[in-house]
Design a protein around this nucleic acid. Structure first.
Length: 747
RNA sequence: GGGCGCUUAGCUCAGUUGGUUAGAGCGUACGAUUCACAUUCGUAAGGUCACAGGUUCGAAUCCUGUAGCGCCCACCA
């Protein structure tokens, strides 16, 4: 075995082997020589963003996926791991905007079309960075099937999904208070918000009663946002609150504005907090908006999309909200209407992307109906997702994450799917430019093909996959496509099937397993589940495995922005991908991981141990041209040591299989490690030296067979974990019925 | 405020249904080594299993409570 010498050097070996694997075509299940009726094993990669670069979380998540895929491939499944990237609307737009800013250009100067061109340029240049990094890790994805969420075929399915929902009556347009980022100029879903603690004040403001009741002249409300009082349309109290019971239905004079507003009773009010009386501003608070709906209150918007006061704010018009706040507090003080102010710590919502404080404002958006309650005979999307897990058809592993999933779905709100950014799937809605006051029936032609026409809100539009050739309303305008784009998750929800070819859908849908991080369980997984049922009538997968989170050594979250992240590429470069994978999996017990670098060193040492043990076996077996045949090599135990190692091997193998099938990935690595190092190397290898030196040809030949057999079996077992070094060693093993690669060996 | 999880050797963590001397990697100490591997081998030190009760013949493991840490959810203006 002259080609195995010295210490193991991962660097060259790894890139050489990865190239060979890719060339072999075996990442593509169509090239695997499997029987026709063989079962599929399909894994959907959680889509990295095109802005992404590899971090520890990806390394962990993708290593686990690769273990599952390689294990099943060797076990004879038609194995497909589908990779892809996500256009990541706001995230990408933000990155490109920042790039442009360096050159002193804003996206508004550029204009929408030019800007989108720039984003595509950026995407084509940098969008596959993470894919290249993943390859270094050794992942065996089928790159021939890589998709991007804005590929032509994918985009078509996205548009189709929109139309489908519209036809089913699940999409509606409405003015709602949404989370608005004034900097990004778009609405955000609740899942896109982050929070930060802020030191603020709680102001106690007197609202005079229109008519004094006995001695009572006013009631006091507490607020953190006095500037929104200009848009107050009620004050609410809890109906059970004795203090205010006799005031319900009475009228107050709103200070500064001098507008009459009613006192109403609503269960949402907490009697314990503040004074128990709350100002209600339906335009600028989600809860107030809901209260407003229940009591049919007027919605008066006083803050605009840029975070400034608007014309309804009178003298405060065009002031920034914070400035108006100060001015209003001053004014209240002057008028003696400020009872007191308290220091108050609270949380404010901020944009997950740019960090700007979120301003709840009313805005016309598209919503996807989720709620369980209003059923139109058919089960709601949320109900379908809920039932899939409740019935056990989809398993969430570990199952304590089910609760989080159920909680979210059971309390779900309609999903705001429109975004006012430029980068994304533009919604397939076309407006009539002429705002005709009334339209006669005769002006409503039948829709052509798959089109739905609508004239709600005096805004006439057509939902259609293609731009209508002629406006069905005025018959002469060039219809204009809506400028809204879809929430990124609207398209990623379709990931298991969107953009796949007919034959791939037939052969590879539904898939088997999804392996992901817990923070996107609801954001993404739940939505894929109901989308699968909605569009393909079949659940997209049966297992959802949630991997742990990698924390820093002192238990903090690893994050780029905090500077606490660690770059796995540094480890791959220094110790090799095998060592890095080993180190990660050694620690990935299911719990969150406080990162310990020494495990990678253990991995590096182990790769070397494996290498040297192989070197020993191969140099001691090659002189006589011994080779083995599998699957049933003629193994017989002639000594106690033989017996022991063979039964230990079988036991180890069984234990590893059981673990992997139960989504345990760290324990099998420990088990195999213990066996190989301590039982095979420390004990049997030493014993074999004696057995080989005895002048008993049968014994020494048999010992050689056993050495080769145990080595080969071990290589297979380790391959899913540390694919490179095992593949390299395999290429040197004298095997009669050898496969082209260990990767496709029979487990 | 609610939910989930964690607390075991100096560090990072295992410990399956309760059952003898509680394990691993790394680190530490001492020793070995021309014979696959110093990325090695051998030996050793090191733990009142967070704390307090309880169940049991027997508890790191089950129950109750307390404390600390982490994460998630929630409309406390």
């Amino acid at each position: 075995m002259e080609s195995i010498t010295g210490a193991y050097e991962p660097k060259e070996t790894e890139s050489k082997i990865y190239e060979k694997w890719e060339k072999s075509g075996y990442f593509n299940p169509d090239n695997l020589s499997v029987e026709k009726n063989t079962k599929n094993y399909v894994v959907y990669m959680p889509l990295p963003n095109v802005t992404g670069t590899l971090h520890m979380g990806h390394a962990l998540n993708n290593t686990i996926q690769d273990i599952v895929i390689r294990y099943h491939r060797m076990n004879g499944y038609r194995t497909l791991w589908l990779p892809g990237t996500d256009h990541a609307g706001i995230a990408t737009q933000f990155v490109v905007e920042k790039e442009l800013k360096k050159q002193g250009i804003s996206r508004f100067e550029l204009g929408r079309e030019k800007f989108i061109e720039k984003v595509w340029e950026w995407k084509n240049k940098y969008g596959n960075t993470i894919i290249g990094q993943l390859k270094k890790l050794g992942v065996s994805c089928d790159w021939s099937r890589i998709r991007f969420t804005m590929d032509e075929a994918y985009a078509k399915d996205v548009q189709n999904a929109f139309l489908h929902y519209y036809e089913r009556g699940l999409l509606y347009r409405g003015k709602r208070v949404v989370n608005w980022c004034p900097r990004c100029g778009t609405s955000l879903s609740e899942l896109e918000l982050e929070y930060k603690d802020e030191k603020s004040k709680l102001w106690y403001i007197k609202y005079d009663l229109k008519n004094q009741i006995s001695n009572l002249k006013y009631i006091t409300v507490a607020t953190t946002r006095p500037e929104t009082m200009l848009g107050d349309t009620a004050v609410a109290v809890n109906p059970k609150d004795e203090r205010y019971k006799n005031l319900i239905g009475k009228t107050l004079m709103l200070p500064i504005v001098h507008r009459e507003i009613p006192i109403i009773a609503d269960d949402a009010i907490d009697m314990e907090f503040g004074t128990g009386a709350v100002k209600v501003t339906p335009a600028h608070d989600m809860v107030d908006f809901e209260i407003g709906e229940r009591h049919t209150l007027e919605v008066i918007q006083v803050i605009n999309e840029r975070g400034k006061m608007n014309e309804n704010a009178g003298v405060y018009n065009e002031m920034k909200a914070e400035e108006a706040r100060e001015k209003i507090v001053e004014k209240l003080k002057e008028e003696g209407l400020l009872e007191k102010e308290e220091e108050y710590d609270h949380r404010v919502a901020i944009c997950y992307r740019c960090g700007h404080v979120i301003e709840p404002i009313p805005s016309l958006q598209w919503f996807l109906k989720m709620s369980m309650k209003d059923t139109s005979g058919k089960d709601s999307l949320a109900k379908n997702a809920l039932d899939a897990v409740k019935s056990g058809k989809v398993k969430i592993i570990p199952n304590n994450f089910e609760k989080k999933y159920f909680d979210w779905l059971e309390n779900i709100r309609d999903w705001t799917i429109s975004r006012q950014i430029w980068w994304g799937h533009q919604i397939p809605v076309y407006f009539c430019k002429n705002k005709l006051e009334s339209i006669s029936k005769s002006q409503f032609p039948m829709p052509t093909g798959r089109q739905v026409i609508s004239n709600e809100d005096k805004e006439r539009y057509v939902v259609s996959l293609e731009k209508p050739k002629m406006c069905p309303f005025c018959k002469n305008c060039e219809m204009e496509q809506s400028l809204d784009v879809l929430d990124t998750w609207f398209s990623s929800a379709l990931w298991p099937f969107a953009g796949l070819s007919e034959s791939d859908l037939r052969n590879y849908y539904p898939g088997t397993t999804l392996i992901t991080a817990r923070d996107i369980l609801n954001l993404w997984v739940a939505r894929m589940i109901y989308s699968g049922i909605e569009f393909k009538k079949e659940l997209p997968f049966t297992n959802v495995f949630i991997n742990g989170t990698i924390l820093t050594k002192d238990g903090k979250r690893m994050s780029k922005s905090l500077g606490t992240g660690i770059d796995p590429l540094k480890y791959i470069d220094q110790y090799g991908a095998d060592a890095t994978r080993f180190g990660i999996m050694w620690q990935a017990t299911g719990q969150d991981i406080r990162w310990d670098e020494t495990a990678i060193i253990a991995g590096k040492k182990f790769a070397n141990k494996l290498w040297n043990a192989a070197r020993f076996v191969l140099t001691n077996t090659s002189p006589n041209n011994i080779s083995i045949h599998q699957p049933n090599p003629h193994i017989s135990a002639s000594t106690e040591a033989d017996k022991k190692i063979l039964s230990a091997l079988e036991e180890m193998k069984k234990s590893v299989e059981k673990d992997i099938e139960e989504f345990e990935f760290s324990r099998p690595l420990h088990t195999a490690y213990d066996f190989f190092w301590h039982e095979f190397c420390d004990v049997y290898l030493e014993t074999s030296k004696e057995q080989l030196s005895v002048k008993d040809e049968n014994l020494s030949e048999n010992t050689k067979t056993i050495l080769l057999h145990v080595l080969l079996s071990s290589l297979k077992i380790f391959h899913p974990f540390i694919p490179f070094v095992t593949e390299e060693i395999y290429s040197h093993i004298p095997l009669e019925n050898k496969k082209e690669y260990l990767m496709i060996e029979v487990w």
